Deep mutational scan, measured.
Amino acid sequence: EIHIRTNGEEQARKVYKMLAKRNYDVKIEQHNGQWVVTAS
């Protein structure tokens, strides 16, 4: 499982799309105001 911390919604969405293209199961979560993308 991969966790990627991003500094904002826009970046989180870019990372989300990139990983989704590679057939990862991707989730975006917010932790303490930080956007974290989780891929498995």
Score class of each variant (00 low, 15 high):
28 I>M: 08
23 N>Q: 08
23 N>E: 05
6 T>V: 15
11 Q>A: 10
5 R>C: 15
7 N>T: 11
38 T>S: 07
4 I>R: 02
31 H>T: 09
40 S>H: 09
17 K>V: 11
5 R>W: 15
21 K>W: 08
20 A>T: 09
9 E>H: 07
6 T>R: 05
1 E>H: 15
36 V>P: 00
38 T>A: 04
33 G>T: 04
3 H>I: 15
32 N>K: 07
8 G>N: 15
26 V>Q: 00
24 Y>E: 03
6 T>A: 09
34 Q>E: 10
3 H>V: 15
2 I>Q: 02
13 R>Q: 07
4 I>Y: 13
16 Y>T: 03
22 R>G: 05
34 Q>Y: 15
8 G>F: 13
36 V>F: 12
19 L>A: 01
39 A>N: 03
38 T>H: 08
29 E>A: 10
2 I>E: 02
20 A>K: 15
34 Q>K: 08
17 K>A: 13
16 Y>D: 00
13 R>D: 03
20 A>V: 13
25 D>T: 14
26 V>A: 05
31 H>V: 13
32 N>Y: 06
21 K>Y: 08
26 V>F: 02
32 N>A: 09
12 A>G: 02
5 R>Y: 15
16 Y>K: 05
34 Q>G: 08
6 T>D: 02
26 V>T: 03
21 K>R: 11
12 A>K: 01
7 N>D: 10
12 A>D: 01
7 N>S: 11
18 M>H: 07
19 L>F: 09
2 I>T: 04
29 E>T: 12
37 V>F: 02
23 N>R: 08
5 R>K: 09
27 K>L: 05
28 I>K: 01
28 I>S: 01
25 D>R: 13
15 V>Y: 11
18 M>C: 15
22 R>F: 12
16 Y>Q: 06
22 R>T: 05
26 V>G: 02
1 E>Q: 13
18 M>S: 06
24 Y>V: 06
16 Y>I: 04
37 V>Q: 00
29 E>K: 08
35 W>M: 01
24 Y>K: 06
28 I>C: 14
4 I>F: 13
20 A>R: 13
21 K>A: 14
12 A>V: 01
29 E>S: 11
25 D>F: 13
10 E>A: 13
5 R>T: 11
30 Q>A: 06
39 A>I: 15
36 V>W: 14
37 V>H: 01
5 R>M: 11
40 S>F: 12
24 Y>N: 04
19 L>M: 06
5 R>E: 06
4 I>T: 02
27 K>F: 06
35 W>D: 00
3 H>P: 02
7 N>L: 10
37 V>M: 02
39 A>V: 15
31 H>W: 13
40 S>K: 13
11 Q>K: 06
16 Y>N: 02
39 A>Q: 03
23 N>H: 14
